[in-house]
Design a protein around this nucleic acid. Structure first.
Lengths: 190, 190
DNA sequence: CGGTCTCTTGACGGAGTTCAAAGCTAGTGG
DNA sequence: CCACTAGCTTTGAACTCCGTCAAGAGACCG
């Protein structure tokens, strides 16, 4: 499943055979079952994960003691708590598989080594970070602009396939409201 | 004021004299007065701005017709609508100076040229994007975790100097509530 | 089939908004 | 250096969206 990553990188920068060998040497494929954890609160986020297949969620435990989802990651996106990853300090987030998933893990120090060996990956990761950051800027706009009802409608229209893949209560959490209220919205729409 | 940028870059990667010359050639210093616009809704976000001195805000006009601030940028941070910047497509955001400011502007195509001439800047910008993205991940956590009152207290504690620099109503907008409610919170604290 | 997740319903309460008006403050020009 | 004005902040009352709690109905998995 490394081929999915190689294909993805190749869309942004060109790789020689020896570059591919270097990537092969520094990354580690990881197969996880539904509900397996990749990071738990209090641990250091040691790896940056590329989703080749499947789906992850990142969440934290809020002041009331319930799980609050902040991000999903589907095929061809990277996920990590980048504060913890960069500083190698304790994370306040959890990362968990929502489906059985195939991931490529890239450890912090392995990433540094790999970037030295294959410098054009600096460009690839810059573009990935820029893409992720741009998506977040858009998301902030929606968060501020839309009512909860509109947030839901917008999400459903923009990711029609994805809505089927996760339980409703996770969507509600991600969108910032309760499963009860989501139920209300869905009733209204019918 | 380019020296501020050179100093900042030098914290992350090392620059030769010719690298510095290249940076000098591709960037443009911009002096703006309070309330000057750097980007207006509908325009393409052509430049990435480094704040050497001063302060910017990014905002959009929400469904009710009022300004909603999504980001501030102070000294040593970069600001752009990265979706518009990357795709060179129309932006839905505005960028405006809150104070008289000294900026370094880097146009999209100039950035591409510069990155070709000085490849280690790919690393610098990767680190900047990663830092900005990490900050956003944290911010999402706070947004979901805190009540409006706690958001305000948290912001004041974390950026004590900054609160003096902007009008209260801009803070309220950034934190996602009304100036009236902010006034209520401030009364309660006293 | 039994038990544990997940989704729905309805009653109630409260954090935060809206609207309107008055009080401040700071910038500007005379 | 004062006076004027526009912009900013405060107040209070009415309202509303959405959360909380509790209980029941499905749905899925071993």
């Amino acid at each position: 499943m490394l081929s999915a990553l190689i294909a993805h990188i190749s869309k942004y920068v060109s790789l020689s055979d020896s570059d591919i060998q270097a990537i092969y040497k520094h990354t580690e494929p990881v197969n996880v079952k539904k509900k397996d954890y990749l990071l738990k609160e209090g641990q250091i986020c040691r790896s940056n994960y590329f989703v080749a297949e499947g789906c992850l969620r990142m969440f934290f435990i809020n002041e009331k003691g319930s799980e609050q989802i902040t991000q999903f990651a589907i095929e061809h996106w990277w996920l990590a708590d980048y504060m913890s990853f960069t500083m190698q300090s304790a994370s306040k987030f959890n990362i968990q598989a929502i489906e059985g998933s195939v991931l490529i893990a890239l450890d912090h120090h392995k990433q540094e080594e790999l970037l030295k060996e294959v410098p054009q990956l600096e460009r690839y990761f810059r573009l990935m970070m820029q893409r992720a950051y741009a998506a977040m800027q858009q998301r902030f706009k929606f968060l501020y602009d839309f009512s909860k009802e509109d947030s839901y409608l917008h999400f459903v229209n923009n990711f029609p396939g994805f809505v089927q893949r996760v339980p409703q209560y996770m969507l509600a959490s991600y969108l910032g409201f309760t499963p009860e209220y989501l139920s209300e919205i869905r009733k209204k729409i019918r």
